[in-house]
Design a protein around this nucleic acid. Structure first.
Lengths: 335, 335
DNA sequence: CTGTTAGCGCTTTCAC
DNA sequence: GTGAAAGCGCTAACAG
């Protein structure tokens, strides 16, 4: 049983209030200060944050909910979020939703009951239920990445549709007309990116046959299986657009296993670099999101909400730009 | 301000004790049960875990310290740890040491003050300081991965030396005699793996010239730079053994950027698969650790310690086997 | 600057 | 089965 403030009270003969004051950076007589400090050292005293939290009603802890901790995308986000939070003196409680909405909700409840001061969520799907829970409990919340427009909640994300549109245009600009897409069709992000692709194709006046669109869950398997199907198509496209990290991974695997080569037989454009583009051979061209900036903005937004108790404001929506990382995975087709 | 047990006391007319009893699964009259349940629903009551923790002295929360959250190795471990913990009704508090021992210690303190019931740590270096802190605070702790032998602490890890020895023997078995190694030289894991490599080479009667050993920090950069140097060597080795995930990544990048090809010009053997072997071209041969098993064993070990208060036992050391994943990155050399 | 007092929200004896 | 009361470790007025 660790030492408590009471132990150091007895050791020093001072009152609880004085000691507490010292602990919280208040002014104490130099002699008492020394008294307290030595007692703390000798007793190995450490503040019980649980007890402190009970009375101050704040835990200096932020909860983060990610849809999958084993996704490098989330790992990277978490690193930057952690860095930003640490700088402000906050700790963070990370919960893995494990790609499951029910787990996500259970975790949200866990965080709320743990009395975190705020929540950042990278949702499994839309996160709407979690937002509702947090609002109900009066806990500030910020959405990242998979946050729909008009979600009535503060959020930071990229312009998914525009990013996909521009990426598709890059392919078109290099002479491709038969372009397939592998995307997630479940959550907002994937749907929007697919929309952007379709718009670009329509604008350019190109067909988008059904068998060029592969929408399913956000997973390596989906990327892998879809790319296999694409490569086996009688009328094979000349380029494929993969709209997230896991799908890109899977697609690369499928091409590697096949007889066909990139970019000679098939051009590829991926999403969410995360070192992948340097590991593949050839180097993959990628749409990259500003991970660090997104994370910092999310933290800033959340901490702002915690500071000033302005509940009933219109939610803030921060939309960040993406950039294109050029590799050697896109073949130029002479027209 | 969320509802408290007091609110539901007033709503139902029952005493705090009865309500508390209900909350903790005790027996209550059916009529009272209904009374309480409706009150809970109407008031949206949720237990305040902070208050509960203060009195029960347990938080049903496990803290996990990882050396870097953006490393896929740790992300994977965390996923399995989380799964195992959830199954037992525990939540987890994840802290990123950010490759820094000081941050690691600060995080350990944070966890201890947050009164986690136990700690799992994948240390930055040896974790000895953290072990000491936890022991002092009376918090059960288990080390993973980078835990030295005789560390006087429960731990689960692979047999690093033997794994590296066997891996090197695979290379030797395929006719390689000039084998270089890129490893981390800072923490236990890397040192042991290098030792295993040296042993295998010595046993086979092969030279290990200085310029074939590249020991530095555990990072992508180190893998990348070292592989570049290796490829430029006048007396280039025929094979390279990369002893962890990040180093393997970096080495693959360097080869991809070079004029040389794998396995024709250079054979490669990596460590810690994590999907990488399927993404590279050719598929990389890899030593793979039993991530899931390691995680589950660590959780089991920790929860066991929490259950029975057997402090003064000899620490348990669980050593798990690795396996070799065969790819196409090793060329057979006819002798 | 210091001490006294009350109380955060909950569990837990111990009578009843 | 239920209630009264004490207390977990700490902070926050408020006097002094």
């Amino acid at each position: 049983m660790p030492a408590t403030i009471k132990d150091i009270k007895e050791r020093t003969g001072l009152s609880l209030a004085t000691i507490s004051k010292y602990l919280n950076g208040g002014n104490v007589l130099p002699e008492n200060k020394i008294l307290i400090e030595t007692a703390i050292k000798e007793l190995h005293y450490e503040v019980n944050e649980i007890a402190r939290g009970l009375v101050t009603k704040q835990t200096k802890t932020i909860g983060v909910l990610v849809y999958s901790i084993e996704s490098l995308f989330n790992g990277t986000l978490l690193k930057y979020i952690g860095d930003a939070l640490r700088k402000e003196g906050y700790g963070l409680l990370i919960c893995d939703s494990n790609q499951d909405e029910e787990t996500e909700q259970k975790n949200a409840k866990f965080l709320i009951n743990k009395k975190v001061d705020g929540i950042i969520v990278v949702p499994v799907l839309y996160g709407s239920k979690v937002v509702e829970m947090a609002n109900h409990a009066g806990v500030p919340i910020v959405l990242m990445d998979r946050s729909p427009e008009n979600c009535d909640c503060d959020c930071v994300r990229i312009d998914n549709r525009m990013s996909a549109l521009r990426a598709t245009n890059v392919l078109i600009g290099k002479g491709h007309r038969k372009i397939a897409i592998i995307c997630s069709a479940k959550e907002y992000t994937g749907i929007e990116r697919c929309q952007g692709y379709k718009e670009a194709m329509t604008l350019a006046g190109f067909d988008v046959p059904e068998e060029y669109i592969y929408g399913d869950i956000h997973s390596i398997e989906h990327g892998y299986e879809s790319m296999k199907k694409i490569l086996a198509l009688p009328d094979r496209p000349t380029a494929v657009f993969m709209t997230n990290y896991e799908i890109t991974l899977g697609a690369v695997m499928a091409v590697n296993e096949s007889e066909l080569g990139c970019p000679d037989d098939i051009s590829m454009l991926g999403f969410d670099d995360l070192i992948l583009s340097h590991v593949t051979n050839p180097a993959m061209s990628m749409v990259v999101q500003p991970m660090k900036n997104m994370s910092e903005k999310a933290v800033e937004l959340l901490l702002g909400k915690i500071g000033s108790d302005r509940k009933s404001e219109t939610p803030m929506e921060i939309v960040l730009p993406t950039r294109l990382l050029e590799g050697n995975s896109i073949k130029e087709i002479k027209m």
